[in-house]
Deep mutational scan, measured.
Amino acid sequence: MSIQHFRVALIPFFAAFCLPVFAHPETLVKVKDAEDQLGARVGYIELDLNSGKILESFRPEERFPMMSTFKVLLCGAVLSRVDAGQEQLGRRIHYSQNDLVEYSPVTEKHLTDGMTVRELCSAAITMSDNTAANLLLTTIGGPKELTAFLHNMGDHVTRLDRWEPELNEAIPNDERDTTMPAAMATTLRKLLTGELLTLASRQQLIDWMEADKVAGPLLRSALPAGWFIADKSGASERGSRGIIAALGPDGKPSRIVVIYTTGSQATMDERNRQIAEIGASLIKHW
Rank of each mutant, 00 (worst) to 15 (best):
S2G: 09
I3D: 10
I3S: 06
Q4G: 10
H5G: 08
H5Q: 09
F6G: 06
V8L: 14
L10S: 00
I11L: 11
I11P: 05
P12R: 04
F13C: 12
F13S: 12
A15P: 08
A15V: 15
F17I: 12
P20K: 15
F22G: 14
H24V: 07
P25S: 05
K30Q: 08
V31A: 04
K32N: 11
E35R: 00
Q37G: 08
L38C: 05
A40S: 12
R41P: 09
V42A: 03
L47S: 05
N50A: 15
N50D: 13
N50T: 15
S51R: 04
K53V: 14
E56L: 03
S57C: 08
S57E: 09
R59K: 05
R59Q: 02
E61Q: 14
R63L: 05
R63V: 03
P65H: 06
P65T: 03
M66A: 02
M67E: 01
M67G: 15
T69S: 02
L74G: 00
L74P: 00
A77D: 09
A77T: 07
S80A: 13
R81M: 07
R81E: 05
V82G: 03
V82S: 06
V82F: 05
G85K: 12
Q86R: 12
E87Y: 03
Q88G: 11
Q88Y: 12
G90W: 13
G90R: 10
G90Y: 11
R91A: 05
R92V: 15
I93F: 03
H94G: 08
L100C: 03
L100V: 11
P105G: 02
E108A: 13
K109E: 14
T112S: 14
G114D: 14
E119G: 10
S122G: 13
A124T: 13
T126L: 04
M127F: 09
N130C: 04
L136E: 00
L137P: 10
L137G: 01
T139Q: 10
I140V: 12
K144M: 10
E145A: 13
E145I: 09
E145P: 05
L150F: 11
L150W: 01
H151D: 12
N152K: 13
G154Q: 03
H156G: 09
T158L: 00
R159T: 05
R159E: 02
L160G: 00
D161V: 02
R162L: 02
R162A: 04
P165S: 04
L167R: 02
L167T: 04
N168A: 07
N168L: 03
N168G: 09
E169V: 08
E169N: 12
P172C: 08
D174A: 03
D174K: 01
D174V: 02
E175N: 12
R176H: 02
T178D: 01
T179D: 00
M180E: 11
M180I: 11
P181V: 03
A183R: 05
A183H: 11
T186L: 12
T187P: 00
L188A: 03
L188T: 06
R189C: 10
K190R: 11
K190I: 09
G194C: 11
G194R: 07
E195G: 10
L196E: 09
L196H: 15
L197R: 01
T198I: 04
A200I: 08
A200G: 15
R202S: 14
R202K: 12
Q204L: 13
D207E: 13
E210A: 13
A211R: 14
V214H: 06
A215K: 03
A215S: 11
G216W: 05
P217A: 10
P217V: 06
L218Q: 02
L218G: 03
A222I: 14
L223S: 02
F228I: 03
F228T: 03
I229M: 04
I229C: 05
D231S: 03
K232V: 00
K232R: 02
G234S: 04
G234E: 12
A235I: 01
A235E: 03
S236G: 15
S236V: 15
E237A: 15
E237G: 12
E237T: 15
R238P: 14
G239W: 03
G239M: 03
R241S: 08
G242N: 02
I243P: 01
I243N: 00
I244D: 00
I244G: 00
A246Y: 08
G248W: 05
G251E: 07
G251W: 05
G251A: 09
K252D: 05
S254R: 08
V258C: 08
T262M: 08
S264A: 08
A266S: 10
T267M: 07
T267S: 04
T267H: 10
M268P: 09
D269T: 11
R271I: 15
R271S: 09
N272L: 01
N272D: 15
R273G: 10
I275N: 00
I278T: 00
S281H: 08
K284S: 12
H285L: 04
